[in-house]
Computed example of a mutant assay.
Amino acid sequence: MSTKTKLWNLLKNGGLFIIFAAITFKIFIINGNVKEITSAISHVNLGYIAMGIVAMLLMVFCEALNIKRCLKQVKEYSTLFQCIQYSFAGVFFSSITPAATGGQPMQIYFMHKRKIKISNAMLAIMISIAAYQLVTSSMAIISLIFNFKFFNTTLGEFSILLYLGIFLNMIFLFLLLIAIFSKKLIYQGVNLCVSIFKKFNAEKAEIFKKNALTEIERYKQGAECIKNDKKFIIETIIIVVIQIAAFHSVPYWVYKAFGLSSGTLLQFIGIQAALYIAGAALPFPGAVGIGEGGFLIFFKTLFPVQLLSSAMILSRGISFYLMILISGLGVMYLQLKLNKNTAPIMNLE
């Protein structure tokens, strides 16, 4: 794919994100009581807001730590600081692309630019995604079980998205695990690609097949190494639990920032886990619109009605819009560093 095409795709996805964000801003902020919202936000405890921001940075750190561990497991060296940059790339590109499809390919690409073998980069990212999906789905299911009455009476028709989100995530996890550990499926995928390429260029198809088989052997060795290391798998899942808990704790810190105290941290994490999985059922960039509207539904019994809109703005502002800004700066830094030693970052040919 040419540089121009890739750049156009990124601009198109970014434009789609901006449109959704603008519509959301119009619906939830401009049409609301701006004076009331501004007044409420101006009186929050900034210490708890800082805790929400720290929680999001902890989420990035945990993902970076797992990427570093996965790369080390397949004999690839990368510093924690470099892995934090990859994590920021994942946050940024996942946020501006439908169904968060852009994050992981860009992470793999950035790793490859630093001479990490594509097979190892792909395996590291797929292991991280699998652990993430497992924990995310498990948290949502556990929350649904323990809060079934709450969700049943509070969500109404919105509950359909919750069930659909859990169903889709479980299917995705199942297919992902097959893709990681199924040797037969990997070879079938390569043979399919080769048969298609031969219709256009037989010589290049054979070159592709030779390179792909080499990468597959490396991939298989790494996958076997990880599959047989139970301690590594358990530690990875524990780190992801901390990662997701930090991510889902943001509404709680906003809740505390307003001086409220009757709700518990576990309660907020559980409800936010369900909201997150419901938002994943629809392929909007960053769940823009769904995240905001869902917050008003999921948390309407925990926040006083006069603070609900303000809480939504602060929570989404910290966990999504601020993180886009921070991760975008991280991606810019990564691009500048790579440009000193390699071709421009958008040159994907």
Results as ranks from 00 to 15, higher is better:
residue 259 G to P: 00
residue 106 M to A: 07
residue 321 Y to Q: 12
residue 143 S to H: 09
residue 18 I to A: 14
residue 292 E to K: 03
residue 236 T to R: 06
residue 219 Y to C: 07
residue 49 I to W: 07
residue 280 A to R: 05
residue 121 A to H: 08
residue 8 W to T: 10
residue 48 Y to K: 01
residue 79 T to E: 10
residue 329 L to G: 04
residue 306 Q to T: 12
residue 58 L to I: 15
residue 180 I to D: 07
residue 203 E to I: 08
residue 292 E to W: 01
residue 12 K to T: 05
residue 240 V to K: 09
residue 349 E to N: 13
residue 180 I to L: 15
residue 293 G to Y: 12
residue 108 I to L: 12
residue 256 K to S: 08
residue 93 F to L: 01
residue 344 P to G: 09
residue 56 M to Y: 02
residue 180 I to A: 05
residue 6 K to N: 05
residue 205 A to M: 06
residue 157 E to R: 05
residue 171 I to S: 13
residue 40 A to N: 15
residue 175 L to I: 13
residue 220 K to I: 14
residue 110 F to Y: 15
residue 348 L to C: 11
residue 258 F to S: 00
residue 273 A to Y: 07
residue 35 K to G: 11
residue 317 G to P: 10
residue 180 I to W: 11
residue 65 L to A: 15
residue 118 I to P: 02
residue 55 A to D: 04
residue 190 V to T: 13
residue 212 A to Q: 04
residue 71 L to F: 05
residue 165 G to W: 10
residue 205 A to G: 02
residue 60 V to A: 13
residue 226 I to L: 03
residue 191 N to F: 04
residue 184 K to Q: 05
residue 224 E to P: 01
residue 310 S to H: 07
residue 48 Y to I: 04
residue 335 Q to M: 13
residue 333 Y to K: 14
residue 297 I to P: 08
residue 24 T to N: 11
residue 204 K to G: 00
residue 69 R to D: 07
residue 216 I to F: 04
residue 323 M to I: 09
residue 248 H to W: 04
residue 78 S to N: 11
residue 269 I to Q: 04
residue 49 I to H: 06
residue 87 S to C: 02
residue 77 Y to T: 14
residue 72 K to W: 04
residue 289 G to L: 09
residue 100 A to I: 02
residue 212 A to C: 06
residue 335 Q to E: 11
residue 215 E to M: 08
residue 210 K to Y: 12
residue 230 K to V: 02
residue 348 L to P: 00
residue 323 M to S: 00
residue 316 R to K: 09
residue 196 I to C: 02
residue 267 Q to W: 06
residue 67 I to W: 15
residue 224 E to T: 08
residue 242 I to P: 09
residue 316 R to T: 05
residue 307 L to W: 12
residue 261 S to F: 10
residue 62 C to E: 06
residue 295 F to V: 03
residue 225 C to W: 02
residue 177 L to E: 10
residue 271 I to P: 00
residue 104 Q to M: 03
residue 192 L to H: 01
residue 61 F to G: 03
residue 53 I to W: 02
residue 138 S to M: 10
residue 236 T to P: 04
residue 220 K to Y: 13
residue 81 F to R: 14
residue 248 H to K: 08
residue 150 F to R: 14
residue 61 F to W: 14
residue 310 S to Q: 04
residue 28 F to Y: 13
residue 226 I to R: 07
residue 2 S to T: 15
residue 258 F to G: 00
residue 249 S to C: 09
residue 334 L to G: 06
residue 46 L to V: 12
residue 161 L to R: 01
